[in-house]
Computed example of a mutant assay.
Amino acid sequence: MARPMKQLPQSNNPLVAFARDLQALRKQAGNPPLAMMAEHSGMSTATLSNAHAGKKLPTWATVNGYVLACGGDPESWSARWESLRLAAAGLPGDLCREALRRWERTGTFTPPHAADEGELRELLKTLLDFNGLSHRTLAQQAPGYSHVTYGAVLRGARPLKAKILYQILIGCGVHSIRSQEAWFHLLSSFSWREGVEGGKLLARMDQPLRYAGDIDMKMLKTVLERLERGRGLFAADIVSYDSTNALRTAYEDMLALLLNSLQRSHTQLPRKLGYVFNQVVGELRNSSIPNPAAIAALVPLAMPFHPRLRTRVVMALKNAGELLRRADNGELSLRGESGLRLPLPPLAPFQRTAPTAS
């Protein structure tokens, strides 16, 4: 029997109301145990429990996993979660809110006006809050500087240099060249010299290094729905040859879509990621399931401008891959007639070229 959920206070607080509705969704699903939800979502029981505690806004990955584990539609929770995240980030005004909303939709993040360098730093801190990043996490995602340096710069204890601004933007997922140009233009209004340095940074970046971002989003969302729907059948214990083949086809279609996008962009991957790319392609050609860590390393390069959707894609591929591995190993009891395997779209070997200076 599932442990009873903690009763939330009767409050108009939007965060508490969000947690209360998550609890209601779980009750509608028959109050499944957290251990079962953890198995279906890939999240820990503690993370899922905190999600409906009403004390802190859960990450989108957590909300996505929680809702899917309860048989719900994550997209119906997306706009509400985004509003809560905007509020939780303590945004300085409507212009910043609109800029962040536009970034979510288009991948372009033009910063609102800042009167001085102090306000620019506040915008950058808001960007970190919006992405749920600590200084340590930022240093992991943008290893050009230590977390101590990032903290000192954002506090104003050290000057905001163009190279540091660039690393902060990359760490926060602002990959659009147009967006980066706008941030450097804003920096140049306070420091002409650093604005020039920012322009030099972008000028040295060769076009193939400017990321892919050319995925057909309509097709990607269609394949993602097939992936999540196929996994939902497994969660409901509807495991047949046909459902397994449908899940495998969606899994392969998603990877083909992502890898072909990278291939068309001629992105110059570092040696390690070039090896990972070829490894994933080879495993797909051999009808084996690639390592989820390898997939997770490539997805951000294929779709850098859609952070929340990227989270769903990585989780869906990870969960589907695990189920398919179990099916291939004979760990699942399949019933029904065998369906037809659809051929994987052709992928040429990835050719790594010498990286350019950046």
Rank of each mutant, 00 (worst) to 15 (best):
A19C: 10
L233C: 11
I164T: 14
P111A: 10
L160Y: 07
L133T: 09
E194L: 02
S44F: 05
L227H: 08
R210P: 08
I164H: 06
S76K: 14
G118F: 03
R210C: 11
D129K: 15
V196T: 09
Y66V: 03
R312L: 13
A69F: 01
L258A: 14
L8C: 02
A87V: 06
M37N: 00
I170P: 03
F305V: 02
L84R: 09
P290H: 05
K221S: 08
L258D: 05
L15A: 07
L309S: 02
S243Q: 13
T149I: 15
A35F: 06
A320G: 10
A2P: 15
E197F: 07
I238E: 14
L332E: 13
A46Q: 10
G151E: 04
A157I: 00
D253W: 01
P159H: 02
T45V: 12
V299M: 12
M205H: 05
H52R: 08
L269M: 12
K218I: 14
Y166E: 13
L332T: 04
L160F: 07
Q23N: 10
S78C: 11
L340C: 00
S41W: 03
A203L: 13
A35N: 10
K6P: 03
T62F: 09
L342H: 13
S358I: 14
E122A: 15
D253N: 11
R204E: 12
A212E: 11
R85S: 04
E331C: 03
P111S: 04
P33W: 07
Y166C: 03
A316N: 11
P159V: 02
R97N: 04
L332I: 09
L100P: 07
L255R: 05
N13P: 05
S76D: 12
R178F: 02
L15S: 03
L342G: 07
G90D: 07
G156C: 05
L8Y: 01
T47W: 00
F277G: 00
D206M: 13
G54Y: 02
L259S: 05
S288A: 12
V174L: 04
M219R: 15
P4N: 10
R226D: 12
R326D: 14
A2V: 12
K125A: 09
N64W: 09
L257A: 06
S333K: 11
G72Y: 08
I168T: 00
K6V: 15
L15F: 02
L247R: 03
H266Q: 15
I168A: 00
P345I: 03
F305G: 11
K55T: 12
A69P: 00
I177Q: 14
N31I: 04
P270C: 06
P208Y: 04
P343C: 06
L34A: 04
P292V: 06
T106S: 15
N278K: 11
L301W: 08
A89N: 06
H40D: 11
S287N: 14
P4I: 06
E39L: 07
N31Q: 13
L347I: 12
P159W: 01
R335M: 10
P4S: 10
L169T: 03
K161H: 10
Q140H: 14
T126L: 08
R136A: 15
V153M: 03
A139N: 01
P270S: 12
C70Y: 13
C172W: 02
P346E: 08
L160V: 05
R226Y: 03
H52A: 14
A19D: 04
R231S: 07
R105K: 14
K200N: 11
D94L: 13
H306Y: 12
A327Y: 00
E82V: 12
R158M: 13
H266E: 15
G198E: 01
N13G: 01
M303P: 00
